Amino acid sequence: MTTRESLELGGSVWLKSGAETLGGAGRIALLAAIRDTGSITAAAKAVGMSYKAAWDAVDTMNNLAGERLVVTASGGRGGGTTLTPAASRLIETYRAVEREHRKFLQHVGAAIDGFAHDWQLIGKLGMKTNARNQLAGKVTKVTRGAVNDEIELGLLGGQTIVAVVTHESTEALGLKQGSDAFALIKASWVMLMEDTSAKLSARNQLRGTVSNVTKGAVNAEVNLTLDDSTTITAIITNQSADTLGLAAGQKAVAVIKASSVIIGVND
């Protein structure tokens, strides 16, 4: 007889400045490490971030806060780094909110059956992006390259999609095997072809069944069902749709270059 592991409710807190994210757990941890070490280099190492990614994060926070949060004795990017009073308040405010947020999740998780799964789904549904295709999955492999990294994402239905991202993006997003992530792909970046064994240079070839074809004046919107829960949309010309003879029920392949896939995570 097997026993099922109990589910634990999880969540994260982030502070916003207007429509932009000022800081989440990663950025607040970086600020705290700067406070404790007095050095950007040491702080970046402590939180597992590159020196460049750390300064990019600091610059972003300074810009969004409308005031300096981190200062150096020389005015440059060297040693003697300290936090301003505003940054210290930001850390304490974040931690206070995070404590209350944790209490909230514990209370609601105990009161509502199945809340852990539903809460995660609500977060995904609330994400706003101009990319038509949003595919959720888990990172199955991270391959370091000379310039960029290859991120392999296992989709819910069993197929795999590969993205090429910079080293800095891999670190900033905390991408590693087993972590949750999602792929964003604009519909205009998706090419369609017949379901054959043709060899292509494009890394991603997702197989599915055409569920709908909607033609406009010039272009057609084609929905390709990959599995019970995943659909990918492509925008192609009417001429291409006619040439391929695309219709509901037909097998087809969505072809996507790895460089056209954007990887994101829920902070």
Rank of each mutant, 00 (worst) to 15 (best):
G10K: 10
S17H: 10
T21A: 13
G24F: 06
I28G: 06
V47P: 00
M49Y: 00
S50M: 06
Y51C: 08
A54C: 03
A54Y: 02
G66V: 00
L69R: 02
L69D: 03
T72N: 06
R77E: 04
R77I: 02
L83V: 04
L90T: 05
Y94M: 02
V97W: 03
E98Q: 11
E100Y: 02
K103E: 11
A110G: 15
I112P: 06
D113K: 14
G114V: 04
F115I: 15
F115R: 09
Q120C: 10
G126W: 08
M127I: 15
K128N: 09
A131R: 06
A131Q: 03
R132T: 15
A136E: 07
G137W: 02
K141M: 10
T143I: 12
G145D: 04
A146R: 14
E150V: 01
L155Q: 05
V165H: 03
S169T: 11
L173W: 04
L173I: 06
L175R: 01
A181S: 08
L184A: 14
I185M: 03
K186Q: 10
A187S: 15
A187M: 10
W189G: 14
M191D: 13
L192T: 14
S197P: 08
A202P: 09
R203S: 14
R203L: 14
N219E: 07
A220S: 15
T225K: 13
T225F: 02
L226S: 05
I232W: 01
N238P: 07
N238H: 08
D242L: 05
L244G: 03
L244N: 04
G249I: 03
K251H: 12
A254F: 04
S260D: 06
